[in-house]
Structure formats: structure tokens, C-alpha cells
């Protein structure tokens, strides 16, 4: 109950915050919210069960396609289309997550990473082979500002609201799950599979379940992107984006949902900010730095964080709040297993 109230409070706070932002910043906020949903799922999967998925972009794409097709198919008032789209996004990504989870239950770390990597690479081919609209992708319906609000807010702000609400719906169950007995079981499996098996915890079931629980928020994140951009294209969900999700999870601190929020904002805003700075450099150099400098810094950040400072941003905040008891300050980090 406490978690739900808190979620509600944060959601309202975030919606209030959109009034301080201009349209483009609100659009970026919607993107960050989409990332947040996916990264929250990823960070729980990696941090609590130790399964590294490089394919969360594909789970987002699955959610996005599900949303686009279902919401376009519904011929009714917009809330109905929205709900149908979200339900489809959850179902499609959940099913794909179930498949991956079933595979993951049988595979050790690098094998799973390999499978998910091949999945990302196969996405454009799948979009061309299956009836998904090829490179142009599938159009998602446009949700205009409701009339009652039209005088008050611009469309970007409205989409930011939708994004925040959907992200909240996606992430809150994850928080509940993580702090409940399911989270305990995940940690048990991570610590020692044999011991957990002896305590009647089936590692395979836990791993599969964790994958599904991680896939659904990712799918909803994909739906958020489809709302904000009215389009789902395979090109938007490539390897680079998938790796960016991993970056966000690691920067935030693996296992930490608050960290996922920080990481998502960083990977959304920093590349843009750095490119603005790179544009100030002389022509030729600026062109070379553009896009690449952000990547370089993210890569260096990943390495530095993992080798020197494995807790990520979440740990930093813990340090700042030194009053906190220490035992809370060490969630599952990259150094644990």
C-alpha cells in the first residue's frame, strides 16, 4: 500500500514537473520515461538474477508493434484504443519474454547474451520478412490533446503525461515484486542455485518468471515510444539502442530502480547535450565528434563504473545519504553473484 501511495505521489510530481518544460524537453521526458520502463525491467533482471539480456530493445520493439497494431485496430474512443494498445504491448512482449526466459533457464550467462544478441541482429530481417511493414515500420495512432486540456497544454506535454503514467504502471509492479518474496527467491537463485533448489525454489521457474517480469515493462516502454513518435521502426531498436539500455542500467547501479530512472535520463539527455557541444567545434572535427563523442564517453563510463565503482549512481546517492544503515546500501551489484 505504501509503495502504491509513493508511486502515485511520484507520478503526480512528475506530471507537475512537465509544466516547467518546453515542448522539446517534454518530448525528451517521454523518451526518458520509455527508457525508464525498459531499464527498470532490465536492471531487475540483471541485478537480481544475474541474467544479462542484450535484447531488451527487441522486447521494446515487440511491445511497440503490439501497441501499434492493436491501437490502430480499435475503432472507438481514444482511451479504449490506448488501453487495447497497452494490453497488446504487455501480452506480446510478455510472450516473447516467456520464450526467452524458457531458453534463459537452460543457458549460462554468455550463451544467453549470445542468443539475445542474435535476436537484436535479426530484428530488421524479421521486420522485412514478417508483415511488420519493413524498414518503414508500422504506424501507431496519434493521440491528440483531449479538448478539455487543449487550451492548456501542447501535444508534447500531453504525450509526456501519458508516458509518465504508463511508465508508472509498468514499473510499480516491478517494485512490489522486487521487494516481495519473488525478489527474495531471485536473490536466492543468484546466490546459489543448488541451495535454493534444496529450499524448494525452482531456479528454472524463477529465471523464466524474472524474464517475463522484465519483458512486460520493456514492452510497455516500447508502447510509450510508439505513443510519443507514432511509429515503430526496426531501425530504432538496433544494437546501439540495446547497448544504451545496458549502459543506463549499469550507470544507475544494477538492481536499483531509482538508479534506472537516473540512467534513463542520462542516456536520453547526455548524447543530445554532448552533440550540442560538439557542434561548437570547427566544422570537420565537429562532424567527427558528432554522435561519436557521446558514445566514447558512455563507453568510458561503463568501464570506469564497472572496474572502479560498481554501485553506479544509486550507490552515490547512498553515500550522500550517509545516515542510511549500511546493509541497505549494498543491493546486488555487478561484483556480486
Amino acid at each position: 500500500m505504501k509503495t502504491l501511495l509513493r508511486a502515485l505521489l511520484i507520478t503526480l510530481l512528475a506530471i507537475g514537473g512537465t509544466f516547467a518544460l518546453d515542448p522539446f524537453r517534454n518530448y525528451q521526458l517521454a523518451l526518458a520515461a520509455a527508457c525508464f520502463a525498459a531499464v527498470a525491467g532490465l536492471t531487475v533482471l540483471v541485478g537480481l538474477t544475474g541474467q544479462l539480456s542484450l535484447g531488451h530493445a527487441v522486447l521494446m520493439a515487440a511491445g511497440g508493434y503490439g501497441f501499434a497494431f492493436a491501437a490502430s485496430a480499435v475503432d472507438g474512443p481514444w482511451p479504449l484504443a490506448l488501453l487495447a494498445g497497452l494490453a497488446a504491448a504487455a501480452v506480446v512482449s510478455g510472450l516473447l519474454g516467456l520464450l526467452l526466459g524458457a531458453a534463459a533457464a537452460r543457458l549460462r550467462g554468455p550463451y544467453l547474451a549470445g542468443l539475445t544478441l542474435a535476436l537484436v541482429i535479426a530484428l530488421p530481417a524479421a521486420a522485412n520478412t514478417l508483415p511488420l511493414g519493413g524498414d518503414q515500420g508500422a504506424p501507431a495512432p496519434f493521440f491528440p490533446v483531449p479538448e478539455a486540456l487543449a487550451a492548456l497544454i501542447a501535444v508534447e506535454q500531453w504525450h509526456a503525461w501519458l508516458a509518465i503514467v504508463v511508465a508508472a504502471i509498468a514499473v510499480t509492479p516491478l517494485v512490489v515484486l522486487r521487494s516481495g518474496s519473488a525478489g527474495l527467491r531471485m536473490r536466492a537463485v543468484l546466490d546459489d542455485e543448488t541451495a535454493s533448489r534444496l529450499s524448494a525454489v525452482d531456479p528454472g521457474a524463477v529465471k523464466t518468471g524474472a524474464f517475463v517480469a522484465s519483458a512486460v515493462p520493456a514492452g510497455l516502454g516500447g508502447a510509450v515510444l510508439a505513443i510519443a513518435t507514432q511509429q515503430v521502426t526496426p531501425g530504432g531498436y538496433g544494437l546501439a539502442f540495446s547497448l544504451l539500455l545496458v549502459v543506463a542500467a549499469v550507470i544507475g547501479g544494477l538492481g536499483s530502480i531509482g538508479g534506472a530512472a537516473i540512467g534513463s535520463v542520462l542516456v536520453t539527455v547526455l548524447p543530445w547535450l554532448i552533440d550540442e557541444l560538439a557542434a561548437l567545434a570547427p566544422d570537420d572535427l565537429g562532424r567527427r565528434l558528432d554522435g561519436n563523442l557521446a558514445l566514447l564517453l558512455f563507453g568510458a563510463g561503463l568501464i570506469a563504473l564497472t572496474t572502479a565503482w560498481p554501485g553506479g549512481a544509486a550507490r552515490l546517492l547512498d553515500r550522500l545519504r550517509a545516515a542510511r544503515p549500511l546493509r541497505f546500501a549494498t543491493p546486488s551489484t555487478t561484483t556480486e553473484r
Binding site: 509513493r6 514537473g17 535520463v265
Partner: peptide
């Protein structure tokens, strides 16, 4: 871990808001 979540998310939002500076969305 549980009780610090609002703080973190609020911090993230504040960071986002700071980037927006004093812009208005109407």
C-alpha cells in the same frame, strides 16, 4: 532500499527539470 526511492526519482526529475530551465509548454 525501499524508503529511498522517492528521493532518487525526485532527484532524477529535478535534473530533467533543471535542463528545461524556465521554459513553458503552453
Amino acid at each position: 532500499m525501499r524508503t529511498q526511492k522517492p528521493f532518487k526519482s525526485a532527484a532524477a526529475l529535478a535534473a530533467a527539470a533543471a535542463l528545461g530551465l524556465a521554459a513553458c509548454s503552453t
